[in-house]
Simulated scan of single mutants.
Amino acid sequence: MESLDKSRFIRIFDKFNDDLRAYNGSQFVSFTTGVPATWESYKPIIRSIALERLGADKWTTNDIGSGRILAAVIRAIEIKESQDVRNNLVPWEPRHNQPSETGRLRDELGNGPARQRFERHVFDLFRERREPADILDELVDLIGRRYSLIAYLYYVLDDSRFLPIGTTTFDKAFEQLGFDVRTTGRCSWSNYQEFIAAVHCVQAGLTKWVGVKDVRLIDAHSYLWLLVRLPQKIAQMRQQGLQRPGDLKTAMIGLAQGVINRVGNANGQLLERVVKNKELFGFSSTEAFYDFLCRAWEEQDGRCALTGLPMLLPQKRRPVTELVASIDRKDSAGHYSPDNIQLTCWFANRWKGTQADHDFGALIDILRRGEEAQRDYPQHFGAITE
């Protein structure tokens, strides 16, 4: 607690309460209700699923180097049970043509000595064969300073001692509170311990100075995340002309109705029957369709899934522009179903046409990088192949 200024801490908590009221009209009650629960309660669920998928208690030394431990780690990261239960503690879902962490693991550790070393480190970590401090620094030597990936494994191992991390966000939160702790580009055992110690201080401050009851370490972690992300979300809402999260749903209802009308006309069905066609939509009701689109907007952070550009929401008195959001089917031959829908800028949706996402993504990457991208996409530059 020596690193925290009490008056500053309380002032920032009061600002946090103001942000909560600005976001949805209610103030902080607990970490198990309201916005903190809606945004952050998934983390212990993800950890539980990850432990089950790892199955570390069944590993044997014969598994080291076989690829089975690496495959289990990847399964424990790539968790998407539903739109509400998905792992965003590690950037494993490819976005805007950026490589995913699990994709990199597959490429870099597919076979050979590197995979054997990685599996030895993970085996020793979960079977308590060596000190966690030694293993973390050896993982850094092997795969680089991939803080979110390594911290996630430690959080899955023991949530009473370890935490996940998103370095940029937490560095901003620490700066607000006056902590002299920075994590970006500094993945190491000593830095990880500084990070966890700082979160412990915040946990104590919430309990002793603010009077919040039953604050777990992961709750203090969530609080720090919200300190940074909640103002960002409010600013984004204001930019879109939204006053409350419910306004987002109103905009998505408009998008959804457009799709329902098009599909209904194409199939000769009455509109009220369209979403009951499970083969077509895969949603239980129109309400489920609207809610899905709202979640997709939140998950994509209001950015086009194909270009990464910030999208505009369709609203009355706003002229239709090329950056207005639209509902795109990843596979144009497929249905408007939960696993085949993404939100994109209208121009990207139109330009993509019937192309596959990865083909259109390659063209967007070429547009950004120019001739520099020729080596990565020789087929688009007229290279002759056998």
Rank of each mutant, 00 (worst) to 15 (best):
L51N: 12
N340T: 08
L105W: 00
P245K: 15
T33P: 04
G268E: 01
E101D: 13
I135N: 07
R117M: 10
N349Q: 05
K58Q: 14
S326P: 02
E298H: 15
Q379F: 07
L70K: 10
R117E: 15
Y223D: 05
V181P: 02
V156L: 00
Y192P: 00
T168F: 08
I234A: 05
D219H: 08
I135L: 13
F283T: 10
S48D: 12
L125W: 09
R368W: 01
G67F: 08
L217F: 12
R273T: 10
P310G: 08
V212G: 13
D57T: 09
Y23F: 13
K80C: 02
S190H: 07
V181S: 07
G246W: 06
I74F: 07
F179V: 06
L105G: 12
I150A: 01
A266L: 04
G241K: 00
K316N: 13
H121S: 01
E93L: 13
G308M: 02
E119A: 02
G258Q: 11
R68C: 01
A50H: 00
M311S: 12
E287V: 14
E2I: 08
W59I: 15
P132W: 12
V212H: 00
S48E: 14
V85Y: 08
W346Y: 11
G241P: 03
A383F: 03
G246P: 00
F16H: 14
D63Y: 09
W225Y: 14
T344N: 04
M311D: 07
I64V: 15
K213W: 00
D5N: 15
R273E: 14
D357G: 06
A362Q: 05
D328Q: 09
N87H: 07
A356I: 15
R303I: 06
T61A: 04
T250M: 06
W225T: 13
Y377G: 11
R130S: 14
T207V: 12
S285A: 04
R86W: 06
R68Q: 04
Q342N: 15
R375C: 02
A348E: 07
R95F: 01
G353H: 04
A333L: 01
I143G: 00
S190A: 09
R244A: 13
I366P: 01
K172Y: 05
H96V: 06
Q379V: 09
Q232N: 08
F28D: 12
L149I: 11
D137K: 03
K6Y: 12
E272I: 10
I45Q: 11
F292E: 09
Q315M: 08
T38Q: 07
L227F: 02
G178S: 03
Q379L: 06
H221P: 09
R95E: 02
D14Y: 03
F174S: 04
I366T: 03
A204F: 01
V263A: 15
F9A: 00
R127K: 11
E299N: 14
H96W: 10
N97Q: 07
D124S: 14
A333C: 03
T38H: 10
D158E: 03
A22L: 12
R244N: 09
G185H: 08
N265K: 13
V275I: 04
Q269T: 06
L139E: 12
K208N: 04
L367T: 15
R244F: 03
L125H: 02
R161L: 15
S222M: 02
D214S: 13
N265H: 11
D365F: 04
